[in-house]
């Protein structure tokens, strides 16, 4: 009962803050609502018993990445109100295609999660708390996808440096 109340209250907060993120006119306010959104998601993880994930969510997203957003927003200092700003290179069709792809992905995840779960031997056999289980899942069961993801991030980082810096 208490869990259900917590879940629905947090869901309302998460969705409400998400709507505020995209509907607020002031960019800094919008970033702040994003922080609140992330904190509520962290609280949701706590109700699911995933304390490690909750703390990492706060540390990485709320405490790290969004601070960088805020930094950039302040440096750029958008003087123009957003409604007068119409990007001439705006690609509506691409936007719709991408949104459709994301929707399809979400539907696929929903269908997949409705199926009965296939038991994975590794994670269940690990004793101990949250941290050990996440570590086992990342570095034993899913080592290759994990390394591929980190390689992808490295490529993106090098690409950003190359694009930003004309002469190396």
């Amino acid at each position: 009962m208490a869990e259900a109340i917590a879940f629905y209250a947090l869901s309302v907060l998460i969705l409400g803050f998400a709507i505020l993120v995209v509907s607020t006119r002031n960019t800094v306010h919008s970033v702040l609502f994003l922080v609140l959104n992330f904190l509520c998601v962290a609280a949701l993880y706590v109700t699911l018993g995933a304390e490690f994930l909750a703390v990492i969510q706060v540390l990485v997203y709320a405490g790290g990445i969004v601070v960088l957003y805020l930094f950039v927003v302040m440096l750029v200092n958008l003087k123009r109100p957003p409604e007068t700003h119409q990007d001439p290179r705006r690609q509506t069709l691409t936007g719709f295609v991408l949104a459709g792809l994301v929707l399809g992905e979400l539907v696929a995840i929903a269908v997949y999660s409705a199926l009965p779960p296939t038991p994975t031997g590794g994670v269940a056999s690990v004793q101990g708390g949250n941290v050990e289980r996440v570590g086992y899942a990342l570095y034993v069961d899913y080592l290759i996808p994990f390394e591929v993801a980190s390689m992808l991030l490295l490529v993106a980082m090098i690409g950003a440096i190359v694009l930003a810096k004309k002469e190396l």
Binding site: F52, A62, V67
Partner: peptide, 15 residues
């Protein structure tokens, strides 16, 4: 059981 990470992450909100 994630006490130290809790301190680091909560402190990062103060920024």
């Amino acid at each position: 059981n994630v006490g130290l990470l809790y301190i680091v992450s909560v402190a990062s909100i103060g920024v």
